[in-house]
């Protein structure tokens, strides 16, 4: 009776992963979690600004020397940047393709008002994603290339940051983007554990708390830097 058994699916393995809604969402989730981890480290590194220019510039210098003597100066930094770029592009492409699909699957709104159970953070994932995408481009132009920083000086990270955040509109952009980042992680972290199949009722509390803490800690950790510059704690 083997002939009536379920035939294998059309798509399998990696092709099924990229060409299915579930697989593509898993890519969004995995790349999202990698970025959360990376941002946590990035945020902690930024906090070194509170220990003065020597410490901070030494940290910036250290980033260029990771991997020595196996890797040449700055190699690690560039490898890491390349990996992160691939991760980011995969995240954006996959989530954009899924979003287009989702909007097509629900083309008409209801006249009646839907009672939404979803939290605000859940509903702002797409808006937040677009804001973050624009911010990342701006942020790189701004602090890595030096666009719009008064007296930008290569290799003088502390001074650049202090100069940069002395402009009020710079702070507004930065703080707003970090709030969106917090929202994105708030829904994203728990959502990713569901997408990847790690969520369990017994783990629900721990996952929720971890997500909340990550969202608040990462957003707040980034925000204290411009606040410190503005209030003169760092100058």
């Amino acid at each position: 009776m083997a002939s009536i058994e379920l035939a294998p699916p059309r798509l399998t393995g990696m092709r099924a992963l990229w060409h299915s809604t579930i697989g593509k969402k898993a890519v969004v989730a995995a790349t999202g979690l990698v970025m959360v981890l990376w941002l946590l480290v990035h945020m902690l590194g930024n906090l070194k600004i509170f220990f003065g220019p020597t410490e901070f510039d030494a940290y910036a210098h250290f980033l260029r020397r990771i991997g020595e003597p196996v890797l040449k100066n700055s190699w690690f930094l560039w490898i890491q940047r390349a990996v992160l770029l691939v991760v980011l592009v995969a995240h954006i492409v996959a989530s954009a393709q899924l979003s287009i699909r989702d909007l097509r699957a629900r083309p008409t709104k209801y006249t009646g008002k839907q009672r939404f159970e979803a939290t605000v953070t859940t509903r702002y994932m797409r808006t937040g994603g677009i804001v973050l995408g624009l911010f990342i481009v701006w942020h790189l132009l701004n602090l890595s290339v030096g666009v719009a920083v008064p007296h930008y000086a290569q290799a003088r990270a502390y001074e650049n940051v202090a100069q940069d955040f002395s402009l009020w509109w710079m702070n507004v952009i930065y703080i707003a983007a970090m709030l969106f980042l917090g929202l994105h992680i708030h829904h994203g972290f728990e959502s990713a554990t569901r997408t990847l199949g790690y969520h369990r009722p017994t783990r629900a509390r721990a996952i929720k708390i971890t997500g909340d803490v990550l969202a608040v800690a990462i957003a707040a950790g980034f925000i204290v830097v411009p606040v410190a510059v503005m209030t003169g704690v760092v100058s």
Binding site: L103, T122, R123, M125, E190
Partner: peptide, 21 residues
Amino acid sequence: VLRMVQAMDDEGFGGCTNVGQ
């Protein structure tokens, strides 16, 4: 699961964003 998800996608349904509605 592979076949059912494929059928679901082929019909043009959207994906889950863990909204819970």
